[in-house]
């Protein structure tokens, strides 16, 4: 009986955490449960969510991408520079920036595939390099003065729904289809579960790795564009620590860091938990320092619980 309850919790535990948080903040603060605030939360986590979809692909293949935070910065600076100093129209600038993001993914994949450098090291190096390039491009100064239209991407609405949220939901749906309905999704899980067995099953593992790193960088580029539109200024320091936040959301959502396991629905909930937690604590006027402590503890508690319960399940 106890283990049955545990099994239930393991499957839905992460939802329970989200619900408990929502109830907690609804009771303790009056501002939390307002429609406007709820939309506000989802808009705040949209960038995190979009990048987390790509990160999930990478982590399920048992890789990791630490360069996403720096890529946010570089895409912000590049796009801003193109629009302000290059006079490129916003659509074209965004397109070029996304192309650059894909190139970053390609380079990540190349180091992993060709030089056989572990993803952690490859993307660690990339993280520093991209951040550096970002500062070099703008000399450390922010870039601003975009056309009014560019703000639509990050600040616009369709009816009551913020555009970033619509993009995030769309990307989660497409990501879900990719993972569950296409052969590539199966290969992603297969490679993460047993890379050599997948290779010996005739899967082109290298191409798949290129694909996931490119997708991760591309989606991060999309998140970066939303970021730029919301801030309305290109700043090189933006996206610092973003990679850790994305990885936290993915792991919180139940994706195994060893690869081969995890569902996007869990990742979405992981993203929402981080959003609710951050928003709720701000409303409660908890200091930024304590917020960090709480976020860290929530991750440890959620993953720890998950591991303990799965061990118990094995014993039954």
């Amino acid at each position: 009986m106890f283990f049955q309850r545990l099994k239930f919790l393991r499957q839905y535990g992460i939802i329970v955490v989200l619900i408990v948080l929502v109830i907690f903040f609804s009771i303790t603060t009056s501002a939390f449960l307002k429609t406007e605030n709820l939309f506000n939360i989802t808009r705040q986590v949209a960038m995190l969510g979009i990048s987390a979809v790509g990160m999930s692909f990478v982590i399920i293949t048992s890789g990791i991408d630490l360069s996403v935070g720096s890529l946010i910065s570089l895409s912000n600076i590049l796009c801003a520079k193109l629009m302000v100093e290059g006079g490129v129209n916003p659509v074209m600038a965004v397109f070029i920036t996304l192309l650059m993001a894909c190139l970053v993914g390609l380079v990540n994949g190349a180091f992993v595939n060709l030089a056989n450098i572990p993803p952690l090291i490859t993307t660690l190096g990339m993280m520093t390099t991209l951040r550096g390039i970002s500062y070099v491009l703008c000399n450390g100064y922010p870039i601003w003065g975009f056309t009014e239209k560019f703000r639509v991407l990050g600040q616009g609405y369709v009816g009551p729904i913020p555009i970033p949220v619509i993009i995030m939901i769309l990307i989660f749906i497409l990501g879900w289809m990719f993972l569950n309905k296409t052969v590539y999704g199966r290969y992603v899980y297969g490679i993460g579960g047993n890379e050599e067995a997948s290779r010996l099953s005739g899967i082109n593992v290298k191409n798949m790795k290129y694909l996931v790193y490119i997708l991760c960088s591309f989606l991060t580029g999309v998140a970066g564009m939303i970021m730029l539109s919301r801030m309305n200024t290109g700043q090189p320091k933006v996206g610092g620590g973003f990679e850790l936040e994305v990885i936290t959301a993915v792991v919180l959502g139940g994706v195994s860091i060893f690869g081969g396991q995890g569902k996007l629905i869990g990742v979405l909930i992981g993203v929402l938990i981080l959003g609710v937690l951050g928003n709720g604590m701000i409303i409660m006027n908890i200091s930024e320092y304590w917020q960090q402590v709480v976020r860290g503890l929530v991750l440890l508690a959620a993953v720890g619980f998950d591991n303990l319960s799965s061990r118990n399940l094995k014993n039954t």
Partner: peptide
């Protein structure tokens, strides 16, 4: 080590 994808289903393994 080289044959099965142990965490995946029978169906997925057969079709892989």
């Amino acid at each position: 080590r080289h044959g099965i994808l142990s965490e995946m289903s029978v169906k997925e393994n057969i079709s892989f």
